[in-house]
Amino acid sequence: MATGDTPNGLQLVMLGERDRLVRFLAARGAGDQAEDLFHDLWQKLAILPERPVGDPLSYLFRAAENLMRDLRRAAISRDRRQSDWHGLSDTPQERPAGDRALIAREQLAAIEATLAALGPRADKIFRRYRLDGVGQADIAAEWGISLSSVEKDLQKAYRAIADLKARFDAE
């Protein structure tokens, strides 16, 4: 591809699973740019220091998922800057720093209160999952509860957070 160097281990897996990865990228919002984004991923992996990866294919799908999230976030902040420029919106970005800090504190307090209202187990499980990056199976083992109980707690927490975000977005 772009470099004449020998592909590294992950890149070899990427080539072998090209169709699956491109199909995922297309479905995940890349549309007809999927081939280009596949190439972007390829370039990213080229400069990555080689290190052992547990499951290379899962790693590649995860990298593709993260790429789409990054692109989406970049697109959202670009739109926001544009509408700020035209003076059409009053987003946190254009408010003074003091206001922004106040809003951030308000949101944090609301999130903490929302999680606390779910009960200590769902609160702790949500933080363990989201902030510590611990998987559901390990959380289930830590608490000595079933996988489906962990999933239910996470669903509950995600739902409450989504409702809260919708309220803030509407303000």
Partner: peptide, 15 residues
């Protein structure tokens, strides 16, 4: 759905 969780992450991590 992904944006909701990311929003909470950012706030909690900044805490």
């Amino acid at each position: 759905a992904a944006e909701g969780e990311a929003w909470a992450d950012r706030a909690l991590r900044a805490a």
